[in-house]
Design a protein around this nucleic acid. Structure first.
Length: 439
DNA sequence: TTAGGGTTAG
């Protein structure tokens, strides 16, 4: 019934389930563990003689896609003729993608051929998916074959198609062939000229292989072609240098790129902070991070989060909190999540930094940031053991310890009233609250 | 439809 409701809701005019809603539905209905629900739902539609439209099937198919269920998706497609429905190429593309991701290129290929049986034609997206799929399983010749095939069918390959193929050729080790392909793209220009994604994926392959000179060569080449690097390009190179322990060269790269003007120093140095933490050089990361703050260079959300987390993990919770305050002052806090806040608050409580804990809890209340349930338990545990009255006073003064639990209860009760559940009927209300909590 | 750092809300 839940899935039928979800499908019904998805068919309402002026409403479309977001990707987030599909995720939530998969999680809530435990689709992966229970793939037979698709059969149950379609069977129920058939038995009850329900009106089933292509859109109904699309909602089911999107659920399969989110859950990564290729076979079930194919099964939904196969049941469409029973309802006199004809799939479109978007639906085929969804299923082809699922089989490509599984590495089942035989099925993906069959599906692409099946499209012709109902007068559908593979489009640019189909070809991109198939070429990527063939490359992933090492079938380079088939991937190149498709490039020819699409031309024959009047679908002129664009830079996305070329980029995918180029990435595959490089990954499979045919460097010369790949360079030839890149040459071709640069010379042809127009629709298939290489873009920042094309160059970045080539740079990524070289970085993964530790071939930093070649990676820098591609950076030169893209700039010479008039294509500016972006944040992804630079962070890929920084990651490559850090993995090789060449931090100095990462700094030199940043100087060069910032001078070029296409990526800000905040973005570049943030990437370096992140990578320094990843390669376990936290002291250097912290030094750089503090220099950024001192010089008015704004760190990005990830750099802030990882830096504070690192300080907490090293046992420097108070330092973490002071850094948090500094970041707050320059207005970079928006993307620091509940995990980091919870970690900081637990640490401050456990180390009995009452005033700081209260201050942080105040921030959290103001920003409506939830405290993770497990962190809440830890704090209660600590308060019971330590009997830290000062801290209890601070925490109670700023309001209820766990406002979310309270307000969600409040919300559930008003919702219950809306649905006609009498709040005095304890058994019914209890059931409603449980359901309410689950959804 | 191609590269791609962590999270939030819905």
């Amino acid at each position: 019934m839940g899935i039928r409701f979800f499908v019904w809701a998805g068919l309402q005019s002026s409403y479309r389930h977001s990707s987030f809603m599909y995720d939530r539905a998969c999680e809530l209905f435990k689709i992966t563990r229970n793939p037979s629900v698709f059969n149950d739902v379609i069977e129920a539609y058939r038995k009850e003689g329900c009106i089933v439209s292509v859109r109904t099937m699309k909602v089911l198919l999107n659920l399969c896609e989110k859950a990564g269920l290729a076979d079930e998706a194919l099964w939904v497609l196969r049941r469409m003729p029973e309802f006199n429905l004809r799939a479109d190429s978007v639906m085929y593309n969804v299923i082809i993608r699922l089989f490509c991701d599984k590495g089942d290129m035989v099925m993906a290929d069959n599906l692409m051929k099946d499209m012709g049986l109902i007068d559908l034609y593979p489009n640019m997206i189909t070809y991109v998916l198939m070429i990527k799929g063939f490359c992933n399983v090492g079938r380079l010749d088939d991937a190149c074959g498709l490039l020819m095939a699409m031309r024959r069918h009047g679908c002129t390959p664009n830079s996305v198609v070329y980029s995918v193929l180029l990435d595959g050729v490089y990954r499979l080790g045919s460097t010369e062939r790949a360079l030839g392909l890149l040459d071709e793209m640069e010379k042809d220009g127009g629709d298939c000229s290489p873009n920042v994604v094309t160059y970045t994926s080539v740079i990524q392959v070289f970085c993964e292989k530790g071939m930093m000179i070649e990676a820098l060569g591609i950076l030169d080449r893209m700039e010479a072609y008039g294509c500016a690097p972006n944040r992804v390009t630079v962070s890929t190179l920084i990651k490559g240098f850090c993995a090789e322990g060449k931090v100095e060269e990462a700094y030199m790269l940043i100087d060069r790129v910032v001078a070029g003007g296409s990526v800000s120093s905040g973005e570049c140095y943030s990437s370096l902070v992140v990578e320094l933490i990843r390669i376990k050089r936290p002291k250097e990361a912290e030094k750089l991070f503090r220099e950024m703050l001192a010089n008015g260079v704004k760190p990005d959300g990830l750099a802030c989060s990882l830096m504070i987390k690192e300080l907490c993990l090293e046992g420097h919770v108070l330092d973490g909190f002071f850094l948090y305050e500094k970041i707050e002052k320059i207005g970079c806090l928006s993307s620091i999540d509940s995990d980091i806040h919870s970690m900081l608050l637990v640490g401050l409580c456990q180390e009995s930094h009452s005033a700081e804990a209260a201050k942080l809890a105040g921030f959290m209340l103001g920003k409506r940031i939830r405290l993770k349930a497990s962190s809440f338990d830890k704090i209660v545990e600590h308060l019971k053991k330590s009997g830290d009255e000062d801290l209890v006073k601070h925490l109670t003064r700023i309001g209820r310890m766990c406002p979310i639990t309270y307000s969600s209860l409040e919300r559930a009760v008003s919702r219950a009233a809306f649905f006609g559940v009498n709040p005095d009927d304890k058994i019914l209300l209890d059931k409603f609250l449980k359901i309410s909590a689950a959804i």
